[in-house]
Amino acid sequence: MAGAGMRPIDPIASEPLVSIRDVQLHYRMGGIFSAMRGRSSVVKAVDGVSFEIRRGESVGLLGESGCGKTSMGRLLLKLEEATGGEIVFAGEPVTALKRAALKRYRARAQLIFQNPFDAVNPRFSIRAALSEPLENAGIPAAEREGRIVKALELVRLPQPQQFLDRYPHQLSGGQLQRVVMARALILEPDFVVADEPVSMLDVSVRAGVLNVFRDVRDRLGLTAIYISHDLALVRYVCERTIVMYLGKVMEDGPTEDIVREPLHPYTQALVAAVPVPQPDQSHDPLPIGRGAPDPRNPPSGCVFRDRCPYAFERCPVEVPRLRQVGTRKVACHLFDDTTGKQ
């Protein structure tokens, strides 16, 4: 595919599992009174996003709060209805799915939540929490316990039986996040969307959960979207990264290339801003203007141009298209041949 072709892949694996074409999620803000005064505004949470995900690929959706990464994840799982564009999963348009087909889709595409303490009903034992999806999928009661134990083993909870009758508050954050992962995997989905799955966990246990995520993904051949604001974590789990800013894709390519040599000026600032646990690191001022823009009133042309140190005449007048630049795609006029820069 035109995406990141960085390693030889067989044709079946390279066929996209998910295709997103010009997807939009626009919210109308303000109530009837603002509308009467002509003051209602539109927030473009996701605005014309296109990408494809191959089978077995892990893609990081990276960006700061409000960039649309979580909205994009919700659109993919049809937890949110797109206001424009198309999402196709295994050849079927997700946007059109109804009832039984939607239920089947929900079993194949799962969400791993951010906060494990919110994701599991505190009144449900672990057994009950994991039985629910099996029950909904019509798995006979006799088979359920075996499936539950298998799922808990998959996420490396030692001696799974001892957890079955426990309640969420009796588990540590790391253990509970593994239970949340087990619940997402118990119906053997093809596709998972993990939304900042370790942001609530302490550093010393976070690594364990990430390792389980990588391991399970490889063993089951999962296709995964990992949503995060943390490039270091995305790099740990995803071979490819999509950088979003104000509802748009800025850069899309192999994670390692993005870390080593970010092309889009926004990605450059983002990479430079990540602190590292080493005493010797750059304290140079970031190459970015201060102040996040108002999402109700984004700049014309390129949405990043008011903070961009390289902005020129073309940036306020024309929205940059996502163009192929070497191994990646970049939405920046600097990388347009007709501009002749860089």
């Binding site: 540590s172 790391g174 550093v203 010393s204 246990v205 976070r206 690594a207 364990g208 959960v209 990430l210 390792n211 943390d230 490039l231 270091a232 974590l233 790099r235 740990y236 390692e256 870390v259 990479v271 990540v274 590292v276 646990p277 080493q278 690191q281």
Partner: peptide, 24 residues
């Protein structure tokens, strides 16, 4: 020492593994 191993380092090698501290 364990905290350092568990912490991702964007300047470190891409192939580096994060090592958790088992237990709580």
């Amino acid at each position: 020492m364990g905290l350092r191993n568990a912490f991702p380092d964007l300047k470190g090698a891409a192939s580096g593994t994060l090592t958790p501290i088992e237990g709580a």
